[in-house]
Amino acid sequence: MSDSSKISVQFSPEAQALVQKYIAKFPEGKQKSAVIACLHLAQAEFGWLKPEVMDYVASLLNIKPIEVYEVATFYSQYYTKEVGKYVIEVCHTGPCWLRGADELITYFEKKLGIKKGETTADGMFTLKGVECLAACGSAPMFQCGMNYYENMDEAKVDAFINDCRAENKISRPYPIMK
């Protein structure tokens, strides 16, 4: 078990309350089940999953740190490296590809001046290609935080980027379970 005295990070009181809510969904002693939701929460709180953040989650759930690392590195939504504030995740799987996913990625690359997989110098945007997001009928599309942006075209991309820059549309980009 983690030595909690060594841990330097801490969730906000709201997030701590959510952790209790997640744990309560599972029978006593099965609190490990809450690790997946807790890691989402940790990303919302700290941006990405630093080792000390994962150790903190392990201490909250009374599980071994390695159990958290194993989970954190398995699932593709978790960022184990630092990412930008807005992570643009463009679906590039078959059905989206048939309707212009590559072109959408290229347009983002041009607009943001970065390549797929990179983060802008100001730390605002990370551009990723991701696998099927179950929105094949409204391709091309991307996800940013909680939201799906569907049937995209260049004008919609422009508007989205402007909204992010103005921060009037998306205040808390990372999705959490309420």
Binding site: P51, K64, P65, I66, E67, Y69, E70, T73, F74
Partner: peptide, 20 residues
Amino acid sequence: NERVHGILNRGDAAEISTYI
């Protein structure tokens, strides 16, 4: 009594590691 290593990452990127 204490496992500190495990399988990290997935698919053909999976590896045995202690992570840190």
